[in-house]
C-alpha cells in the first residue's frame, strides 16, 4: 500500500495552501445557460445567480491529478454553501480554493479517500460573497 500512502501524504502536504485564484465575470448568457440546464424558470435568475451557480463560474473543485492515482473514480460526497452577499450579472468574482482536509475511510466495498475542499468567493469590491465546502471522494 506504499503507493496509496504516498498519494495521501502528498495531498496532505497541500492542506491549507491556497490554489491559484480564478477570476471570472458573471455573464448573462452563461447564467441563462445554467438556469436552463437546471430547469429553474424563476425570472429572478435573469439578474441574480441561483444558489449553486458559483461552482460553474469558477470551477475550483481541483480534480487533483495526483488523487487519481487512488481508486478508479470520483464521487461527490456533498457541498455546503454559505451566502453573504447576492451575486449579480456583471459582478467580477474571484475564487480562492484550497484543500482543507484529506483522510481515508473504510467503506463497505473497499477504502475511500476523502478530500475536503474550501473555496472563498469575493466580488470586485473585495466583499466575501460566499464560501463553499465540498467533499470529493476517490473510490
Amino acid at each position: 500500500m506504499s503507493t496509496t500512502t504516498s498519494v495521501i501524504d502528498r495531498l496532505r502536504a497541500r492542506v491549507g495552501v491556497d490554489g491559484p485564484a480564478v477570476t471570472a465575470t458573471v455573464e448573462a448568457g452563461h447564467l441563462k445557460r445554467f438556469v436552463d440546464a437546471i430547469g429553474d424558470p424563476n425570472p429572478r435568475w435573469r439578474q441574480e445567480v441561483p444558489p449553486t451557480f458559483l461552482v460553474a463560474l469558477a470551477p475550483v473543485s481541483l480534480h487533483l491529478a495526483e488523487a487519481e492515482e487512488y481508486g478508479k473514480g470520483w464521487l461527490n460526497g456533498g457541498n455546503r454553501f454559505e451566502y453573504f452577499v447576492p451575486v449579480m450579472v456583471g459582478d467580477q468574482i474571484t475564487a480562492r480554493g484550497r484543500v482543507a482536509d484529506v483522510y481515508e475511510k473504510e467503506g463497505s466495498s473497499g477504502n475511500l479517500l476523502f478530500i475536503i475542499f474550501e473555496t472563498d468567493y469575493t466580488n470586485q469590491k473585495g466583499d466575501l460573497v460566499a464560501r463553499l465546502r465540498g467533499t470529493a471522494i476517490r473510490r
Binding site: 440546464a37 437546471i38 430547469g39 429553474d40 424563476n42 429572478r44 441561483p50 444558489p51 449553486t52 461552482v55 464521487l75 461527490n76 456533498g78 457541498n79 455546503r80 454553501f81 454559505e82 451566502y83 447576492p86
Partner: peptide, 26 residues
C-alpha cells in the same frame, strides 16, 4: 450531485420567494 443540489436549491427559493434570504445550504 450539484444538479441535484440545484433542484433542492430551487425547492427552497421557490418556497422562500422574496420573503427572506438564503444563508446556508448544505
Amino acid at each position: 450531485g450539484l444538479l441535484k443540489a440545484a433542484f433542492l436549491g430551487q425547492l427552497v427559493t421557490d418556497w422562500l420567494g422574496d420573503r427572506g434570504r438564503l444563508s446556508t445550504f448544505e
